[in-house]
Amino acid sequence: MTEQAMIRAVDLHKHFGPVEVLKGVSLDVNKGEVIAVIGPSGSGKSTFLRCLIHLETIHRGTIEIEGETLVSTDAGGHCHYAPDADIRRICGKMGMVFQHFNLFPHLTVLQNIIEAPMTVKGMSRDEIVPTAEALLKKVGLFDKRDVFPSRLSGGQKQRVAIARALAMAPDILLFDEPTSALDPELTGEVLRTMRELAEEHMTMVVVTHEMAFAREVASRVIFMDGGNIVEERPAQEFFAAPEHPRTRAFLENML
């Protein structure tokens, strides 16, 4: 079996009006890898993730997901996105977890999880409910099955959001600062869930400020600054001996 990258991003460029936010970001993510993306606020981390799953469009570059081209750029510098139906299928291989959870407030925890499999995949309730319940047990929230999100703590909400993403059986999970909106004492339960996913070899790209998590769980660490990837190394090396001065300055600030 040939080793095919789960995500292949080449030379991504993105600007908002005159503001250049991604200035040629490239990254390959292999199966089972956990990539931690760190960097100062405003460096383009969220934008990068959002481009991968087509919440934002790029202006130049190539994105391939499991060998399928989401967007490519021709020699003339023009970007070509796949047709809508293909985009939906390709992005369906990924799930995303947001800083602010984005749970559906009018649906109970269980309904939040089964809604997409039923509406998007056309699964029957009977088919998906056992899966959803298993996922709820996995994230330790089975007893919250019939509760509305407003009754949950931030940590519980985020674990429901993870279960909701998993219910679509994605091959890749993207996390955009999943613990940044949480009280410090609630980050642990979410990080634990993510750690378990990593142990099950889920492919993950995680934008985070949790350096301990990055060090212990990530296989590789990406440091972004000013719309570029400044440094990219295996996690152990990255923290043991950061090479770039800006990386060092950033890490010193974090500790």
């Binding site: 939906r88 959870f101 984005n102 559906f104 809604e115 509406t119 909701r164």
Partner: peptide, 22 residues
Amino acid sequence: DRGQYEGARVLGFTYPQTMRRI
């Protein structure tokens, strides 16, 4: 909130599905 649309979008909802269900 825009997050509702994005939450639905990354789960694969089409725009009409997002409107109707979410």
